[in-house]
Every structure is written in structure tokens, then in C-alpha cells.
């Protein structure tokens, strides 16, 4: 009887494991079914490289290049801000901070991760955007930069906790060996510990970026959502995620516009899949 029970439990766990994969596949097919239907109306080339996003015109103009570049510029901005900050924070927590401070800092970083994105968007809209507007003398504070700063704060917790893990797991003997050879603490950190933890650091950066690309609410509130081809980080941009979120509500089901939004979803799915894949590769390289 006990064996029988164990057998059932085992199978249920197995099933749960497969369920995750099944859901991913189902989501993919669902996206693909409606996303690919777009290409009955428009060619993939026009969709990916068209520079005008104006889905309500007659005929609809469906080119996602401005949206793609919008997502890209916000993401790069966020990465430029969050990678150095996150890395410095992780090194400090793992290597320099005394034990009592380490616990406080770790809890603080985790708390940052728990702030809902809409709250960050709200704070950004009322506090950050007027500051950006005044510093750069812009007509509006709703720019790609504003979005980047807010997103950087959302990426930092992911980055810090994974980086900190990988830095802490560098074998103690590396550090001791380096110090014994007369290297200073700083030399040891950047010549020995960071290279040894590099695969984990790369994975952390990738996962942080994955989080930024998929973020919707905060960018929708902060980037101004003008679907222009971005020339500077100080102008409003429209991201792919914000476009889906903003336009899904009003689109006519089964229209070209509706399928176009699914096709954007498909593009996003592809990008995050690629990033996660790269992060995984980076992480596994370490084990060899």
C-alpha cells in the first residue's frame, strides 16, 4: 500500500514537472496562432522593419521598428545604470561588508524586489519625471531615460542576489591564495574573485535585462509612449510591452491590429527566450 502511495505521489510530481513545459508550449502555440495570422495581411518584412506604427489608420500601418528600438533604448539605458550599481552592491555585500551589515543589506535588496511595478511607476511619474524635466530643460519629463532609471531599480535586486550568490561561492582558497601572494584586498576582488564568478555575473546581468524587457506598467507610465523612431534617450519612446498593454483593451477582435499585438507578443517571447537561454549557457559554463 505504501509503495502504491509513493508511486502515485511520484507520478503527480512528474506530471507537475511536465505541466510547466506543457504550459510554455501551449502559450507559445496560442501566441503563434494569433500572431502569425497577421501575415495574411502584411509581410514579415514590413512588420519587423516598418517605421510607422499607426494601427488605427486606413489602411493600418503596422511597423514595429520604432517600438522595438524604444524597448531597446530603455533596456540599454537601464542596463548601463543597473549593471555597475548592482555589481558594486553585490561585491560590497559579499566581500566587504561586515556580517551584521550584510544581513541588513540583503534584506533591503530583497525588499526592493517586492515593490510592485505600478508603485515604482507612480513614484517615477510624480517625483522622477519633474526632476528629469528640470535637469535637462525638456518640454516633458516622460522620456526613455526616466523609464530606464525606474527599470534599473527593478533590475538591481535580481542582479544583486544572483551575483552575490556566485561571488560568495568562489572557493575560499582562491582568495586566500591571492592574499598570501601579497595582493591587496581590491586586487584580489577584481583580478581573482570577479573572473572566477564571471559566469554567474553574466547570467545575473542577462536575467536582470530579461526582467527589464518584459516590464510593462512602469514604462507605460513613464516613457510618454510616442511611437517615434528614437533619436535620443531624452525623448519619449514607446515600448513593445506598453503597446500591447495599452492597445489590447480597445482593439476589435480578429482585426489586423489585434493580430499585430499578438505578433508583438511573439517577438517579445522570442527575445526573452533568447536571453534566458544565453543566461543559462553562461551559468552552465561554470560547471565545466
Amino acid at each position: 500500500m505504501r509503495r502504491f502511495k509513493e508511486f502515485i505521489i511520484e507520478k503527480i510530481i512528474l506530471l507537475s514537472g511536465f505541466a510547466c513545459i506543457l504550459f510554455v508550449i501551449l502559450i507559445f502555440f496560442f501566441l503563434a496562432k494569433d500572431g502569425l495570422a497577421l501575415f495574411k495581411f502584411s509581410s514579415p518584412w514590413n512588420f519587423l522593419f516598418g517605421t510607422l506604427w499607426s494601427p488605427l489608420s486606413e489602411p493600418p500601418q503596422i511597423g514595429i521598428l520604432p517600438l522595438f528600438l524604444g524597448s531597446l533604448i530603455v533596456t540599454i539605458g537601464a542596463a548601463v545604470i543597473s549593471v555597475p550599481l548592482g555589481m558594486a552592491c553585490a561585491i560590497f555585500i559579499a566581500e566587504i561588508a561586515p556580517k551584521w551589515m550584510r544581513e541588513i543589506l540583503k534584506a533591503g535588496v530583497e525588499l526592493l524586489a517586492a515593490i510592485p511595478s505600478i508603485v515604482i511607476g507612480f513614484i517615477g511619474m510624480t517625483m522622477l519625471s519633474p526632476i528629469v524635466k528640470h535637469i535637462f530643460h525638456l518640454p516633458t519629463g516622460l522620456t526613455a531615460l526616466t523609464g530606464s532609471i525606474a527599470l534599473a531599480f527593478m533590475a538591481i535586486p535580481t542582479m544583486v542576489s544572483i551575483m552575490e550568490d556566485s561571488i560568495s561561492s568562489v572557493p575560499r582558497i582562491y582568495k586566500e591564495g591571492s592574499l598570501a601572494l601579497g595582493a591587496t584586498h581590491w586586487q584580489t576582488i577584481y583580478r581573482v574573485i570577479i573572473p572566477a564568478a564571471s559566469s554567474g555575473i553574466v547570467a545575473a546581468i542577462m536575467l536582470g535585462i530579461g526582467r527589464v524587457i518584459g516590464e510593462t506598467m512602469a514604462v507605460m507610465m513613464l516613457t510618454g509612449n510616442a511611437s517615434v523612431m528614437p533619436h535620443t534617450i531624452l525623448a519619449p519612446v514607446r515600448t513593445m510591452t506598453a503597446t500591447i498593454a495599452a492597445e489590447m483593451g480597445e482593439t476589435v477582435r480578429g482585426s489586423e491590429h489585434y493580430f499585430a499585438l499578438f505578433a508583438i507578443g511573439l517577438v517579445l517571447f522570442g527575445i526573452t527566450f533568447l536571453i534566458n537561454f544565453l543566461a543559462d549557457m553562461a551559468r552552465h559554463r561554470k560547471n565545466k
Partner: peptide
């Protein structure tokens, strides 16, 4: 009609915004 909002128009998510 052929007219359309210019791409440079900022699309705000709410009336309050």
C-alpha cells in the same frame, strides 16, 4: 479620413496623467 495622430504625440495611459 486620412489624418492620423502624429507619431510624436505622447500617448498617456490615463485621464489623470
Amino acid at each position: 479620413g486620412p489624418e492620423e495622430y502624429a507619431p510624436s504625440v505622447l500617448m498617456m495611459p490615463s485621464s489623470e496623467a
